[in-house]
Nucleic acid binder design. Sequence first.
DNA 1: TCCTTACATGCCGTTGACGGTATATAGCTG
DNA 2: CAGCTATATACCGTCAACGGCATGTAAGGA
Lengths: 104, 104
Amino acid sequence: MPSEPFVVLADPARRRILDLLRERPRLVGELTEAIGLSQPGTSKHLRVLREAGLVTVRPEAQRRWYELRPQPLAEIDAWLAPYRWMWAERFDALERHLDTMGDA
Amino acid sequence: MPSEPFVVLADPARRRILDLLRERPRLVGELTEAIGLSQPGTSKHLRVLREAGLVTVRPEAQRRWYELRPQPLAEIDAWLAPYRWMWAERFDALERHLDTMGDA
DNA sequence: TCCTTACATGCCGTTGACGGTATATAGCTG
DNA sequence: CAGCTATATACCGTCAACGGCATGTAAGGA
């Protein structure tokens, strides 16, 4: 039962991890250094990401290659979709214009 | 200093409020009933949304009309942007294909 | 086998989110 | 003014997230 992607993304360290994995798979050690947390701390964030289906692991001897699995982000995108047109340029002006037409 | 939109959206009640405001401005009472929390609970979520710049208030006598202000969502969208192509149809297959090519 | 590397897990403390009830505040109405 | 309506704030309890350190576990190397 993967947790909500929204909740998972609320933590900046986890967003950073995903951003790093966007480039290429990474080892826990690399990620630890990059995000500036302890190794256990990093591992715990990776667990959350794994349980949310946002990363997968590929073991190689004692190492673990973490790779991005972006599918769950589609849920975020879907929620966002109906809002997306709204912040396009000069929306406020358009809205005021439509309000004016409504008055007429 | 508005809080992170990601954090604000982590709570389902707040996402629900935004969804409701997408249709039209609403009074606190309407929102309270819709999300099934206590009135103070609703007010507190509205405060968070206000401080994040996601809603604005228009007082009218004792009533408060809350309206959507979608601009901060652009930050979410911007973060999401580089991922968006990735979950397009059959990405997994493409990825496997590229991996195979790498092996060859 | 012993040590080291790479990572996961257990445990703990602190902190803040979230929800509720009680109460304050502001504006209307009679 | 009294009292009602609509909303905000104060205060409190609970719980879980997040971070750290210590330790467990698995694999490789000497």
